[in-house]
């Protein structure tokens, strides 16, 4: 009996998804849908939070006040995006604190891209252009995700992401018109970021067994390879504007498909970084844990202050 009930609940759920009716927090949903979303939204939130680290370390070294203002605002946005997403994730019945623990202990993943270092100012520009560019490709379809709170959070994120990409591109454009040294710095940064950015879309479709289910549930709207192709196609023209070469000798236009073909991706490198052996994995987690631990007294003090204030107000009310 219970089984029949579950089947009809699941059919009803899938019918809503098929008809583009959003699923809201208290609606019935398959347990696996809930788990998939918790994993995906929390990884996304963690990526925003860790994503502040490689950029944050350039705030004090930004070359002008204009650049510093832009970068501070961008890093603050990343924190905001993390918070929108944690808040969406909590609607699925998991506590914020548990999500933080999963990040801090390394149990949860975040986007591997943030395990690469930012040795020069041009790397910060590349994060805006390529990393945020790839993120936008991924995120725009998520605005139509079947889960209401996630879709709504993504609408806010996407609105703000466009400023991030433009500020990065402007930074690089300035370098592209600069001295020979600046131009070289720009090209070297593009060489460093191109392939990791390509990997941001995740494993190739044939190695991505969960994609089919996620597409059926309309959590995902495009496959990893479809999104990667869109990214390649727009980047080629943008690279020309910057006068840089994308470091892929096999990159060329395919008349038949109307798309740019690209060379093979080094999936060994991808999995190696995912598994924790990228250039900065340990450093990022250490910095994150230090920030969390150093903030513990603030969180505790705020609770005590709030309690004292409440008691004082209650006492005042009694006297009156």
């Amino acid at each position: 009996m219970a089984d029949t009930k579950n089947i009809s609940l699941e059919e009803n759920f899938q019918a809503k998804v098929d008809n583009e009716i959003k699923i809201e927090p208290k609606d019935w949903m398959p347990e696996k849908y809930r788990k998939t979303l918790i994993r995906q939204i929390s990884q996304h939130a963690h990526s925003e939070i860790i994503g502040m680290l490689p950029e944050g370390n350039w705030i004090t070294r930004a070359p002008s006040l204009r650049r510093k203002l832009g970068l501070i605002a961008k890093v603050q946005d990343e924190a905001g995006h993390g918070l929108y997403l944690y808040s969406a994730c909590e609607t699925l019945g998991i506590e914020r604190d548990e999500l933080f623990q999963q990040l801090n202990t390394g149990k949860a993943k975040y986007s591997s891209i943030f395990n690469y270092p930012t040795p020069t100012w041009a790397d910060i520009g590349c994060i805006g252009w390529l990393v945020d560019g790839a993120a936008i490709m991924n995120q725009v379809p998520l605005c139509r995700c079947s889960y209401g709170p996630y879709a709504r959070a993504m609408v806010r994120v996407c609105k703000e992401e466009s400023f991030h990409q433009r500020q990065g591109f402007e930074m690089l454009l300035t370098l592209s018109k600069g001295t020979a040294e600046q131009k070289a710095m720009l090209q070297e940064a593009v060489d460093r970021w191109w392939w990791p950015a390509m990997m941001m879309f995740g494993p190739s479709d044939k190695d991505s067994p969960n994609t089919l289910q996620s597409m059926k549930w309309k959590i995902k709207r495009f496959t990893n390879d479809e999104l990667r192709q869109k990214f390649v196609d727009v980047c080629v023209g943008q690279a020309k504007v910057l006068g840089v070469t994308l470091p892929d000798p096999e990159l060329k236009y395919n008349e038949e498909t109307g798309h740019y073909d690209h060379g093979p991706i080094d999936w060994d490198e991808f999995w190696n970084v995912v598994k924790g052996n990228g250039p900065c994995n340990r450093q990022r987690l250490k910095t994150r844990n230090k920030a969390y631990d150093d903030g513990a007294w603030v969180r505790e003090a705020a609770i005590v202050h709030a309690e004292k204030k409440e008691q004082r107000e209650a006492a005042k009310a009694q006297v009156a």
């Binding site: 603050q76 905001g80 929108y84 969406a88 709170p149 709504r152 705020a302 409440e310």
Partner: peptide, 24 residues
């Protein structure tokens, strides 16, 4: 309704809401 956040009390919730939900 725009979302949620954590705060120790109502005053702090207003301050955090300002920073999280009305930066623009």
């Amino acid at each position: 309704h725009v979302g949620s956040l954590h705060a120790a009390n109502a005053d702090m919730a207003i301050e955090n809401a300002r920073d999280v939900y009305t930066r623009r």
